[in-house]
């Protein structure tokens, strides 16, 4: 990775994202950091500065205030001059049964994981289109590959991101804008802290170098860790009759 990359980040305090940012900071990255929580953001800003990063700017706001996105991206472009990498990493994992019984929970799930992310992605893609270059990385999820009874609410939102990223890849084919769709498997983060960990689980520290390599390689769909590509291939090809009976 070249040093001194100029990076715009939404969801800067998410666990996976902060491990990736550490790597970018140690190669003297320039950052414009955006997060929902100002306290967490302040912790993140100090950490990246110590690690060798330069914070060109940072701000926090509620990502569901969609009318603010454009101005935020505008300020980021102004502060960074040019954007080499955009990272969109925020999200939340709701309780599936809550989403079945409570319309408010379902709505929050879609807004946190699809609506806000999709609008930010579109807005950033627009900025990259204007400058004609840059890499846009967003975190979708293996959960979006197939609806499962245990978490189809979250899965449906992530599936939407997946379709959006596919479309963007097609839109930017032939240009210098790279669309990197990261599909994390089960990763031990605060978001998944309530779930029992096991053999297939990985950690943000372990997958961060894979995200960095994905940025270097350019546009595409990346399962992290890589074995999830095979697991999801099997899950996707299971007949409905079997899928419905599996306890997943």
């Amino acid at each position: 990775m070249n040093s001194g990359q100029r990076v715009l980040v939404f969801g800067a305090s998410s666990a996976i994202c902060s491990e990736l940012l550490k790597l970018l900071a140690s190669s003297e990255g320039y950052f414009y950091l955006v997060a929902r929580d100002s306290f967490k953001l302040a912790v993140q800003v100090a950490d990246l500065e110590v690690r060798g990063g330069t914070i060109a700017g940072h701000e926090s706001y509620d990502f569901n205030q969609w009318e603010l996105h454009e101005a935020v991206v505008g300020r980021a472009v102004e502060s960074l001059g040019q954007i080499d990498i955009v990272i969109i990493a925020h999200g939340s994992l709701p309780d599936q049964s809550d989403c079945e019984s409570s319309p408010a929970a379902m709505r929050a799930c879609i807004e946190d994981n699809f609506t806000s992310a999709a609008m930010i992605i579109q807005c950033c893609a627009g900025a990259l289109a204007v400058q004609g270059s840059g890499t846009l990385l967003a975190l979708s999820s293996v959960a979006g590959d197939r609806g499962r009874k245990s978490n189809y609410a979250y899965g449906s939102a992530k599936s939407g991101i997946d379709a959006l990223m596919q479309g963007l890849r097609a839109r930017f084919t032939g240009s210098s804008v790279e669309i990197v769709n990261i599909k994390p498997g089960m990763i031990e983060t605060p978001m998944t802290a309530h779930m029992p960990s096991g053999a297939l689980w990985s950690t943000p520290e372990a997958i961060a170098p894979q995200l960095l390599r994905a940025i270097e390689k350019g546009g595409g769909v990346y399962y992290v860790p890589g074995y999830w590509r095979f697991i999801m291939l099997i899950i996707r090809s299971l007949p409905n009759a079997i899928m419905a009976r599996l306890p997943i």
């Binding site: 666990a15 993140q44 100090a46 950490d47 110590v50 690690r51 605060p190």
Partner: peptide
């Protein structure tokens, strides 16, 4: 393990 951030140097 997640309280692993630098504060100042």
């Amino acid at each position: 393990r997640r309280l692993n951030r630098f504060i100042s140097f």
